[in-house]
Design a protein around this nucleic acid. Structure first.
Lengths: 360, 360
DNA sequence: CTGTTAGCGCCTTCAG
DNA sequence: CTGAAGGCGCTAACAG
């Protein structure tokens, strides 16, 4: 049923009685106008008969472009990162680029590995959601001419452009909302200074507290990671040390979940707890079910994604035009920040609202 | 700072005073023993000096293998699919393969597009979580010699191997658990017959009901999609028609969420509802916070992923050995099913437990 | 509009 | 152990 070997342009050319060049042109929309309609049809007929599919690898070798953009995220099983990625994919697809996703498993070392891997495979550009705060490997690649862009997180000592959320302002507003409700003993939980988002959010919290004339009890600032386990542990510490705040700001969704989980556990053990008002970054379809949650800071995920996607494509084009442009900015790196929206939760989760309206 | 052009084997060979063949061999662990230690070092030194990285595209063209496996999932922002994918990636990475993820956006047409795209790019094998019930495009690729494997969902009229969960048994157990608690009016919500998982789960529900001697009120079987919006809508229908069951089985997590969201809304409007016991497929870190939820069917996600990953790698190896083996089974397609675990929810979500134990 | 001709960068026999 | 040489399949000048 099937040919022993896959058919090549040469086979098609032979069968169609034309040259390989014509066959090649017939398949490239950009050159199709240089091929007579009759030839084009002969080519297509021959191709169909031979079950020809073009070999993209060979094409890439010649054109030095794979029409592929890679995205490196710290995790795959993370709604925020994947929604970001899906937003980017929409743009890439429309531009005729293929998206390639890889996980750095929250490790800078893995990130580095993926990066060189992609460089070897000649992806046209890479969008990185950095796993940590180390950026030298990024700069290096950028200097070698690879179009590169950061999303969501910054990296110190990097001269790369980035698309981010207004984390500091968001955390400030979140804190202000709690202050506005009359809370004074407000904790900040989660994150550490190796991730820019956490740093910025902490700064926003501090700023809001100061502006409100409140002194921060430093034992209520509990740093240490961005995962569920971290929120769980940090909340546990507060419980054990009997240092319960009146309210708290959670650095992100996962930490927030860990916190709630720890509180739920306490409650199930029959211990009664004073209600702690929670304000947290990121919203989910589950938010409506989380007790204690008062305010969420909602990031413009698709905005971030679209912005980033368009930007990296622009860089790719530029790099093609001026081969040695690369991704290193002679001057300052350019950073775009998108605002986040603060929303009270008691009237229901907006995200769910949106999702519910979606036509399946 | 940077070379105008990327260095090639030829550059390295020239600088090292050796031939390109030796350079090539020095870089391939499988041939390294055919290179003298001195030559190897000279090569490495020259490579380092020139900042040489091998061009994987050229290599692929020659070897006809990209050392890449593609995964096509209906969505990226879906924990189940991405956990599956992460599980596979672990195996691939260890085997020296790169993972390439793409979304079919729940569309068979998009799936088809991705499939041909990957075929053109010479991925070594493809793991598909099918978007729909159409399989002809898959068979065709398989017949052309592409190693192919289905995960999570089956496709009718396909002769492809697959790794799946025991959906029918899971749904049966879920239903039995509710029956065991004394419920008799049990609904089944979500899914439709275009997706095998939904079909199988519905069958399991029917089977359990019959075995328990209960007649199914057909108006309590509400099919129609696998997303949040679907659960929300279907639950809404039941509410409007005033046909509330005592308990229900939700086909999957998203539908379950939609159902709960609809009920929450009702409750917030001040209407009192009889408590409906819910049993649902799939567990999350949020499960502990969902009211009404009694039982979950937990799939062995990492088991599925590992199994699938190993299998596709095996197929890739075989295809390499016998070029025309492809992915079409002369006989029956082989299907592996992994058991699901039914768990009561009131003692807390197991998944969270696991996550909490994770060392961050 | 079409054909001819060189490679893209690497691997891999086949001889040394 | 090493080198020379011939492609992998395709595209991009350059001539017709």
């Amino acid at each position: 049923m099937s040919r022993k070997q896959k058919a090549t342009v040469r086979d098609v050319a032979a069968l169609a009685g034309l040259s390989t060049a014509t066959v090649s042109r017939a398949f490239d929309p950009a050159f199709a106008h240089l091929v007579s309609e009759e030839s084009r049809q002969r080519v297509m007929a021959a191709a169909a008969q031979l079950n020809y599919t073009k070999n993209h690898v060979a094409r890439s070798l010649k054109t030095r472009s794979t029409k592929t953009i890679a995205v490196i995220a710290p995790e795959l099983a993370n709604d925020f990162f994947m929604e970001l990625t899906e937003a980017m994919e929409r743009v890439f697809e429309q531009a005729g680029y293929t998206l390639l996703v890889a996980s750095s498993s929250n490790s800078v070392k893995e990130e580095q590995k993926r990066l060189t891997l992609f460089a070897e495979r000649l992806v046209d550009g890479i969008v990185v959601i950095p796993a940590g705060d180390v950026g030298e490997h990024l700069n290096q690649l950028g200097r070698q001419g690879m179009p590169l862009l950061l999303v969501d997180r910054l990296v110190t000592g990097s001269d790369l452009d980035a698309v981010l959320s207004e984390n500091e302002a968001g955390a400030r507003s979140l804190t202000e909302a709690l202050v506005g409700d009359g809370y004074r003993e407000i904790a900040f939980i989660g994150g550490d200074c190796t991730v820019s988002t956490a740093r910025e959010r902490l700064a926003g919290y501090r700023c809001a507290m100061e502006d409100a004339g409140l002194t921060i009890r430093e034992e209520l600032v509990r740093l240490g990671g961005l995962g569920i386990a971290d929120g769980y542990r940090l909340m546990g510490e507060l419980l054990e040390e009997q240092k319960l705040p009146e309210a708290l700001v959670a650095v992100n969704l996962l930490v927030h979940l860990g916190i709630q989980r720890r509180l739920l556990e306490e409650q199930r053990k029959g211990r009664s707890l004073p209600p702690i008002a929670i304000a947290a970054f990121d919203e989910t379809v589950y938010s409506a079910f989380l007790p204690l949650l008062r305010y969420v800071a909602v990031q413009d995920v698709s905005g971030l994604g679209e912005r980033a996607a368009r930007w990296i494509l622009k860089k790719v084009d530029e790099a093609k035009a001026i081969p040695q442009a690369g991704s290193v900015n002679a001057q300052e790196p350019e950073i775009v920040r998108l605002p986040v929206t603060i929303m009270p939760v008691n009237r229901g989760s907006f995200k769910t609202q949106e999702v519910l309206k979606e036509q399946p």
